[in-house]
Design a binder for these strands. Structure first.
Length: 291
DNA sequence: TGACAGGGGGTGT
DNA sequence: ACACCCCCTGTC
């Protein structure tokens, strides 16, 4: 037992080495909202019942330390490391020069495998908000309505817990008009025990249709939840950044989001979601460099 | 340092 | 198309 202590630093068995930029893009690029940079190469993060520090070593290896030893195994799954290793080869980079360029720019970029319910909460907060603001909302929700896990860290409230929080208190967590969506969604989920778990297990199209029944969940949010919270790599979320990318790099001027999503799934195949993340990273970097 | 627009990773009507 | 909320950011 090491009550109150953290494990010694251990390296993670990842396929390739990571750069600081790619790690930052993976942890803090809009997939998850509970990571913060503590130092140049040290990240502090929370998901589910897990708390962890990640440290990028000089050689590109990733080391971790956590209050709970079992976080190590959970981390491998969370970082999507199970699915990596040659995954890139299933993408059409040979015939798509822009995709090839994105893959080369962010080697090792990962799709996280987060808890399903948490991911739903995060992306219900995301409408017309930037990452900093979403992180702020999520931090307040955890602080005020999540159960303590020790060390001053709270986990996110479950949907059952959320169902008992008045809309006004949600609004006080800087949610704005999203407070009503989250309140109503919590009522729906609370009224149907097992609904979340069943939805998570459904095939992509059926799971997406069910998620879209929830107030505040449209195609984009549903795809994000399935991609980042259920490992459905065929999900292809279309937001304003991807619309820009598909116009600028693929010539799809004037296409509607649903058409772009269809094109994405056809063109990129079963790993469309992974391709989307690379395109997204590229476009964000391009916007930063333009400033 | 402080006030003031402008706009933001969508959804629902 | 436009409202929904209201916080962040850049600017003066």
């Amino acid at each position: 037992m090491n009550a109150g202590g953290w494990t010694a630093w251990q390296t993670l068995p990842l396929a390739g080495s990571l750069s600081p930029g790619v790690l930052a893009e993976t942890l803090d690029g809009g997939q998850a909202f509970r990571w913060r940079r503590e130092a140049d190469a040290v990240w502090f993060g929370i998901w589910g019942e897990h708390v962890v520090r990640l440290r990028l070593e000089e050689n590109g290896e990733l080391a971790w330390s956590a209050p709970r030893p079992e976080t190590g195994a959970a981390l491998v799954r969370y970082l999507g490391a199970e699915a990596e290793g040659g995954a890139i080869d299933a993408l059409p980079w040979r015939s798509d020069a822009h995709l090839a360029r994105c893959l080369a720019e962010f080697p090792g970029l990962k799709i996280l495998r987060q808890p399903f319910g948490e991911t739903l909460l995060g992306f219900l907060c995301s409408a017309t908000k930037q990452i900093v603001q979403i992180k702020q909302m999520i931090a307040l929700l955890a602080e005020r309505h999540g159960a303590p896990m020790g060390g001053g860290v709270n986990r996110l409230p479950t949907w059952a817990e959320l169902a008992a929080v008045p809309e006004g208190e949600l609004r006080a967590c800087l949610l704005g008009f999203r407070a009503r969506y989250i309140y109503q969604t919590a009522q729906v989920i609370a009224a149907r025990p097992g609904w979340l778990e069943e939805t998570e297990a459904l095939p992509y199209a059926e799971a997406k249709a069910r998620l879209c029944e929830l107030p505040g969940v449209g195609e984009k949010v549903a795809d994000c939840v399935l991609l980042f919270g259920a490992g459905r790599m065929e999900a292809f979320p279309v937001d304003v950044w991807i619309i820009k990318t598909m116009e600028r790099r693929y010539g799809l001027h004037g296409w509607k989001p649903a058409q772009i999503a269809h094109f994405g799934r056809m063109h990129f195949g079963p790993l469309a979601g992974l391709a989307q993340q690379y395109l997204f990273a590229w476009e964000r970097a391009a916007a930063r460099n333009a400033k």
